[in-house]
Design a protein around this nucleic acid. Structure first.
Lengths: 208, 208
DNA sequence: GCTTACACTAAACAAACGTTTGATTGAGAT
DNA sequence: ATCTCAATCAAACGTTTGTTTAGTGTAAGC
């Protein structure tokens, strides 16, 4: 692996763990095993490194997540809502990355959702918004009819709220429920999100 | 207001906005209009200041929020689930603080939920856990019967996931839905959370 | 063999950081 | 009037910060 790549990987892990200001250039280069000046040589500045982390690594992973979702959906034109929610939960909670990498991804994303940097605007327009739009179009027919479009959007937000929360507040959930985040428990989480959200949207009991 | 209080208030606003490392002691004292040394004089260190912010201001507000919730619940021994969820949403999304103060509270809380500091453990045990426990006991009778206790806990987590998310990802939700966070929209949010969660838990349609 | 271009490094840079110091203030007690 | 004590201050402390500089090694082109 090149120095550039080593810096990129180390940086995104540290940024996710401690936030932008919580990490120094020396922390990164120290852990990556290279010189302090490498960051400025390859990325111009610390900010440039963060920008590269987000625009390259995050966007790349987002695209992978989204394409995995579409693969799970298959080629059916009108998938049932359960399949949509389940594919979404599975794609974002289980695959296709390592536990660690998934955590990095969601932490960085949550940081930006809460306090967007200059980078996030571009990312939001190009990557997130189109995905939201097509998700909404698929789910809308199954929602209560009489409510307004803006309120229907909230149903989609509620699903994402759970996915994000169950990915992020891991330490807290472990404390409250006493469960460890192993594969089996993640299956339970997915099953729960699907059932809860399906009932929430359609009013059915979430079972066949 | 005493210097001590001015520092405390300024500090919590800045910590919430930019995180612990994102704020310098000079930022705080500058905005509070006092000397740099005041922080170390009154709180021993920057860390001591953060600790005080969390253990005093946050705990105080949490207790206010919780007592507001119980006031909304009233003295009925077995409140209907709709009342529980609505009281919870209203307490945490609308009152009894200013928009700004509520934001501060939830941002700091989310930061700790994601990456707990040494302070959080105590806070969790004394303030959060007892509240969760009594909420769970009230909601449990209305949940599906056949599932395990740990899975039932997730229903409670899903409600909080939404409350936290709709408080935090404000900028993102504004971008996606195009709605501004005024009083009317917050009413819509509360109504949505109640209806979505009620159906999610009980399977009913969320209406009378 | 000389040049060019690139990846990398040790050392130094000014600025900002959290913290400490020593002096000054002003109100209350003796 | 003198002493006391907590509060506040300007100034300086030693580190750590992001960044720059000047130099080294190396492989390819001519």
């Amino acid at each position: 692996m090149s120095t550039r790549e080593k810096i990129l990987n180390t940086a995104e892990a540290l940024f996710a763990e401690k936030g932008y200001e919580g990490v120094s250039v020396r922390d990164i280069t120290g852990k990556a095993g290279c010189n302090v000046a490498s960051v400025n040589y390859h990325f111009g500045s610390k900010k440039g490194l963060y920008r590269e982390v987000f625009l390259v690594k995050m966007a790349e992973r987002s695209r992978k997540l989204q394409s995995l979702f579409w693969k799970k959906i298959g080629d059916s034109a009108n998938p049932p809502p359960e399949q949509i929610i389940r594919s979404l939960s599975e794609a974002f909670l289980r695959s296709p990355f390592s536990e660690k990498e998934r955590m990095i991804h969601h932490k960085l994303m949550a940081r930006e959702a809460e306090r967007p940097s200059e980078v996030f605007d571009e990312f939001h327009k190009k990557v997130l918004m189109p995905f939201f739009r097509s998700l909404f179009l698929m789910l809308e027919p199954h929602m209560p009819r009489r409510i307004k479009r803006e309120q229907k959007m909230l149903y989609l937000m509620s699903i994402f709220a759970q996915i994000i929360h169950f990915n992020l507040a891991r330490t807290m959930i472990t404390k409250v429920t006493g469960q460890t985040y192993d594969e089996r428990y993640i299956d339970d989480l997915i099953e729960h999100i699907v059932r809860f959200s399906l009932k929430g949207i359609c009013g059915g009991d979430g079972r066949k």
